[in-house]
Nucleic acid binder design. Structure first.
Lengths: 233, 233
DNA sequence: TAGATTGTTAATCGATTAACAATC
DNA sequence: TAGATTGTTAATCGATTAACAATC
């Protein structure tokens, strides 16, 4: 597969396609055209065909795409069949929530362990996973060549912990700490989940939506007045 | 303020600017140029000046930007001073984690209540917030004109709950359910936090990074062989 | 075969970067 | 004043959309 550099925008759409195709599969749909899929996802059919064509030819003229086949291709592109391994580092509120309800396996990640340093947490078991002391992180990561870490420690120790993880050989960090990690290493993959950034973007659009609504209301009011005046005449 | 339509890319960068300016303020930095800020954030100075100029003239030639002043402008653009109100709907693992550790007030959102329907959850108090029965949602939202809801219910009830919230007058949904809501209403603001999408994007880049690493290793190996052969000659 | 729909090339649109006059 | 740095216009780059020949 000759990979010209794929744009980030395309990559970010792939998981959405996957989700949609899963829904279609559950609903028993066997094939779908780029036109139909585009209507469902509010994308143009052109964009969908362009996106897929970055990776190969998954469709068939006059027919469209086979739902299960396409789903499998995308899953493979995303690396879901690579048996990546992962550890959870920091079992506070968010770490615990992920352990309790996030299905790592479903996305191709095998959970190898969860770690913390607080005595009231270490030793407990959550959803079948025993919380170990972080002293054991280095050994596990090196022994099992763990690929990725979910970073859920407190802000204050985020950068330090991240750098330790790198030095143990972790290749990728899923970062829930709301800290910009700024790591020295070049080829480390960091994926941030910044709750606050998401909320603030929403806040902007909410403010805009309210402003536009009141502009509309204002216009309608003035229009009504005019109508009223006309009626009086 | 004459708002030409601001692109989504710009909006998504604003919270990052805010975070960075907060860090600078804490570090006691008073002024910063677009050049310096750009280096810190890995953006071009051009882009930074373009971004800000969408909203007004916040800098001063020959000087740069005042950190606190710029911070305040961005906070205001994001609507952080609008006293938005919010409810948490669904207090499972993720809802609880947010109640326990997410600082809504810091981002300008006032938490008006948390709701669930499960008898083992309703009546409990988390971080000073009493969990109420969802039967009370309609009354509270209408009485207090609540602006936004954090949607943390289970997948199966996500769409139904979202539609109820809309019918009660909610204007915005922060969606943690990992379901594409597809609401009928036009002017509702939805902001998704899709953990799985984020993880799968990371998975793609991790796979790519591993592949590239092994290509590099392969090349180095072949090079070494050549060198060894030369040395033998 | 006729109709449908792909994969791909070309055209358009929008976002980023570069350049520079204005000015603090 | 001289140096620095903005805000903005123009140039470039990249992403999306449109069009269409290929083909199932």
């Amino acid at each position: 597969m000759k990979h010209v550099k794929i744009s980030n925008n395309v990559i970010r759409r792939l998981p959405r396609y996957l989700r949609r195709l899963d829904e279609l599969a559950v609903a028993g749909v066997e094939r779908i055209s780029s036109k139909e899929l585009g209507e469902k996802m509010r994308l143009t059919s052109s964009q969908i065909r362009q996106d897929f064509s970055c990776f190969g030819e998954f469709g068939q003229q006059g027919y469209g795409y086979n739902v299960l086949g396409l789903r499998a291709e995308i899953a493979s592109i995303l690396g879901m069949d690579r048996n990546f391994t992962m550890v959870v580092v920091g079992v506070g509120n968010i770490g615990r929530a992920l352990l309790e309800s996030f299905c790592f396996e479903q996305y191709g990640f095998k959970l190898m362990g969860a770690f913390d340093i607080r005595p009231d947490v270490v030793g407990k078991t959550i959803n079948g996973v025993e919380i170990l002391h972080a002293d054991g992180l280095e050994e596990l990561i090196k022994a099992e060549q763990v690929d990725a870490a979910v970073l859920c420690v407190q802000k204050a120790s985020a950068k330090r912990t991240a750098n330790s993880l790198l030095s143990y050989g972790i290749k990728s960090i899923w970062n829930f700490t709301n800290v910009e990690l700024e790591l020295d290493e070049e080829d480390i993959v960091v994926e941030d989940i910044h709750f606050s950034d998401s909320l603030l973007s929403m806040s902007y659009y909410l403010a805009e939506s309210i402003d536009q609504e009141s502009i509309r209301a204002e216009k309608a009011k003035r229009l009504n007045k005019k109508v009223a005046v006309k009626k009086q005449q």
